[in-house]
Amino acid sequence: MPYITTPDGTEIYYTELGEGRPVIFSHGWPLSSDAWQKELKLFADAGYRAIAHDRRGHGRSARTYRGNDMDTYVADLASLAEQLDLQDILLVGHSTGGGEVVRYAATRGAGRVSKVATAGAVPPIMLQSAANPEGTPLEVFDGIRAGVLNDRSQFYKDLAETFFGFNHQPEKRSQGLVDDFQRQGMMAGLNAAYDCVKVFSETDFTKDLEALDVPILIAHGDDDQIVPIAAAAEKAITLVSQGTLKVYEGASHGIWGDYQVALDDDILAFFAE
């Protein structure tokens, strides 16, 4: 299996398909590059070199005790791009991965990154505060941490119901998606999964969005129960200089079904512009 080794000695797994202009996919919590398997094929078939990595502590990457923070995640992504000698990069990030690619493009990607696309992304900031009343209360994230710590196997199964919106669309429920969400979640080290809750909920990406100097497609489902659109995409679009907001009616946080088909088509069209 292909790995790169970061400057601090951490092994980061990645997978790739195809040849051509590079597209890097960054996954959400608590998943892995496996979440992008369909996109890897679709984008490779469309003539791109499609690459997805497992964030440190997740999937097949090394389970580290330290370094589970956004700046280190971004440094790992930078190491991947540098070691694979990638240029003219197109970035795609979902949820936590959306924050990762935005910060990388804004702080480490000058001269390498051409466009960014995010879906259900966490920027600007998820946590509720006086300055961000639309955000999610701290107690919700404390509950996620408790679920991960005490019975993560069952917690991931339960979380999948709202992640994919099956509680709102029970007739479309897929046991396979639930099982795969749990499988990928269990691949993540407990320590990394626990620490990452703070990362995706409390990291402030406001300055990153303001500094972004490449075009960005901000995609979001209007029935996203994990990262509500009012605190995320609707705010993020006001902070970027070259942004396009695309809202998907009835779409959940998880990328699947008709939403996945439409999103993939829209990202391919955006990258081809």
Rank of each mutant, 00 (worst) to 15 (best):
Y14L: 10
Y14F: 15
Y14A: 10
Y14G: 15
Y14E: 12
T15W: 03
T15A: 11
T15I: 12
L17F: 08
G18F: 04
G18A: 09
G18R: 04
G20T: 05
G20Q: 08
G20D: 06
G20I: 05
R21F: 07
P22I: 02
P22H: 06
V23D: 01
V23R: 00
V23H: 00
I24T: 10
F25N: 12
F25I: 07
F25M: 02
F25Y: 15
S26C: 15
H27I: 04
H27T: 06
G28K: 02
G28R: 01
G28F: 07
W29N: 03
W29I: 05
W29F: 09
P30I: 09
P30F: 04
L31F: 10
L31D: 13
L31T: 07
L31Y: 07
L31G: 15
S33W: 01
S33P: 02
S33T: 08
D34N: 08
A35S: 14
W36H: 11
W36G: 04
K38S: 13
K38R: 12
E39W: 11
E39M: 11
E39D: 12
L40V: 00
L40A: 03
K41F: 09
K41I: 08
K41D: 08
K41Y: 09
K41A: 10
L42T: 09
F43T: 06
A44L: 04
D45N: 14
A46S: 13
G47C: 13
G47I: 09
G47P: 00
Y48V: 07
R49W: 05
R49V: 00
R49E: 05
A50L: 01
I51S: 06
I51L: 04
I51A: 03
A52D: 10
A52G: 11
H53A: 12
H53P: 00
H53D: 14
H53T: 05
R55G: 08
R55A: 11
H58M: 15
H58E: 00
R60N: 12
R60F: 14
S61P: 05
S61C: 07
S61F: 03
S61D: 06
S61K: 02
S61G: 14
A62F: 11
R63I: 07
T64H: 09
T64W: 01
